[in-house]
Amino acid sequence: MIEATGLTKHYGRTVAVDNLSFGVGEGRVTGFLGPNGAGKSTTMRMILGLDRPTSGDVRIDGEHYRDLKRPLTTVGALLDAKWVHPNRSARAHLRWLAAASKLPYSRVDEVLDIVGLTAVANKRAGGFSLGMSQRLGIAGALLGDPRVLLFDEPVNGLDPEGILWIRRFMHRLAAEGRTVFVSSHLLSEMAQTAQDLVVIGRGKLIYQGTVDDFIANATENTVVVRSPELDRLTELLRADGVSLVADGDAIRVSGVDSAAIGELAAANKIVLHELNPQIGSLEEAFIQLTGDTVEYTAHTDQHTAPAEPAGATEEAPPA
């Protein structure tokens, strides 16, 4: 259980995190969502006692991180995969971490095996690809077999294979009953990984709750309709006061479900070529909710997630 209350961090005049309060539930994967620069990493650093909050407080199971004994056995974290000395071998990096937490060195080989780095354990970490560094970081996070895991943008910059590996790994950790708090600016990624969401923009809390509620509350469900008699159907729908927009050779209807549209078409003997209900995506929900709090969005990585409907993510949000 991670509990933040009124967490605030100023860097000079910049307000990185602004009166942020949220909770991360036990045994679930909670996504920490927000655009780049929203204050996710700062929040994570404050959870880990690396940065001091300007005001407010964050506790793990009721304790400040700095007061934890052998903290790696309570909280494992991967904030930045490049936080290793490039001339130190993967094994040596994990060995000093193990020593600091009074863990047996045999645990080092175990975690190396879990993340699949056994073969390169004695190679210098500086020569690792990003994917390998990420695995090494995860090995470090798992070292103390902690109940709580924190990951900051774990799929950032990874190739599709690496993303898949991380995603499976998160599920496995959650299935083992661990609390996983994972940040991302990739909304599609969160839809696939998380059950709960904490959404922030410009350092402020925007939403906290389940992923399903987030999508249901924040998006409008629409139906895509294709027909050779589109003009007539449009007129009939408009006559009923239904709102719709043209979308190429189709129309996008909102406010009524597909059944009602089908019945209306049948009653008027209109042929339908397509009647396709669209489920709102996280992307749409996010843009709807965050509005102008979106500072940057990233696009390209989302193509690796085939389940995503095209659309919202490709549009530049209002600045």
Partner: peptide, 21 residues
């Protein structure tokens, strides 16, 4: 070099008592 490679953060994460480490 700990500051340069940010391993100081990993260090303080493993041992939050900065004075002792």
């Amino acid at each position: 070099t700990e500051y340069r490679f940010a391993t100081i953060r990993t260090t303080f994460q493993a041992v939050p008592n900065r004075t002792s480490i």
